[in-house]
Structures are given as structure tokens and as C-alpha cells.
Computed example of a mutant assay.
Amino acid sequence: MTIEEDIKQTVPFRTPYHRVMVNLMYTSNWVSDSQARLLKPFGLTLQQYNVLRILRGHYPSPAKVTDITERMLDKMSNASRLVDKLVLKKLVVRTECPSDRRAVDVVITESGLALLKRLDTYQIKWDESQEKKLTEEEAILLSKLLDRLRTE
């Protein structure tokens, strides 16, 4: 289905660049929605999942909240608030940084790692379903083009 059909647009886009930007936004929301549906039964938001994955990449070393913020996919997220919610779910622990008492160290727990391991199987299935839509070469090209769009 084309972007025009999906958004029921009857008037042509002004330019191919306008079309691609609308298509990117629409597709980004589509991917986010499908990922959110995958995470909902596990009681996680996309942003919380992103924090857990960042912390798994640091494991077993702690990460500072500022480091998490820098690596977040959604730059508008409040990493401190997200960490607090994950602490309540016992998926991460937060401690005062010994070298800088103003900073906070965050480490993923065994429960957090186990949850991510379960989610990995769902993520792999989702990825495999997408592999039927693009060849590996197309995925590489699309990724390169998206990288180019973000260059200034």
C-alpha cells in the first residue's frame, strides 16, 4: 500500500522530498506502534525498553543517567524518570556514584536481563517478518540513505 493510500491523500505531494518526509514520519509511527504492542504485555514502554537495552550493553558496569540520556533513541525522554519506574519494577538498581556524589549509577538487574532475553525472541520474530519485505541489500541501502538524511 502506498503512503497516499494509507493516509487517504487525494492531492499529490508538493515534491518527492515532501512525500518521503511524510512517509518517514508515518512509517516511524507504524514501527513504534508495533513495537509498543509487542512490549505492552511485559509492562514496558518503548523508552523503558531502550533504557534496559542500553544498560545491558554496559553490563556488568554501571551507567550514569547522563550516559543513558546521550544514547536514548527518543531524545525527549526523561531518563531519570524512566530509571525510577524501572527501579520500582526491580529491573534496575540505582546507586550513588562513589566518585561523584551528584551522579547516579544505574545497573540492570538479573530480572532485567532475563526480561530482555525473553523479549529478544519476540524481537527476532518481528525482525524476521520484516526480512520478507526487504532484501538484505535493500535494508543496507535504506539504512545508508537514512544516515545521509541526518547529516548536516
Rank of each mutant, 00 (worst) to 15 (best):
G43R: 10
E136D: 13
G57R: 06
Q48G: 01
D127G: 05
E137A: 11
Y26E: 15
S61A: 14
M1L: 14
V92E: 04
A114C: 09
A103Y: 08
A103H: 08
L44E: 00
K8Y: 07
P60E: 03
S111W: 05
R148L: 15
R150W: 14
K133G: 05
R102M: 12
L52V: 07
K8N: 13
P62T: 12
I140H: 08
V51S: 01
R94I: 02
V31K: 04
M25N: 09
D67T: 14
K117A: 11
L149G: 02
M21W: 05
F13R: 01
L119V: 06
L115C: 05
R81I: 00
M76A: 14
R150C: 12
M21K: 01
V65K: 13
I124Q: 04
T15F: 01
D127V: 02
K64H: 12
K64R: 15
D100C: 03
I7F: 08
P62M: 10
D105V: 09
E5D: 15
D33Y: 04
V31W: 01
M1P: 15
K125L: 11
L52M: 09
V92W: 04
K75A: 05
Q130K: 09
A63G: 06
A139D: 05
E5L: 07
Y17R: 10
D100Y: 13
I54L: 00
I3Q: 06
S34W: 05
L141R: 07
R101K: 13
L86Q: 04
L119S: 02
E4M: 07
Q47F: 01
T109G: 03
L116P: 00
T151N: 09
R148F: 15
G43L: 12
Q47V: 07
Q48N: 02
Q9D: 06
L44M: 10
T66R: 15
S99I: 13
L24D: 15
N29S: 12
S111V: 06
R53P: 01
E138W: 07
V87Y: 03
G43N: 06
R14I: 14
G112H: 03
I140E: 02
T15C: 12
K132Y: 06
D147F: 13
P12F: 06
L88F: 03
T69N: 11
N78P: 06
V22E: 14
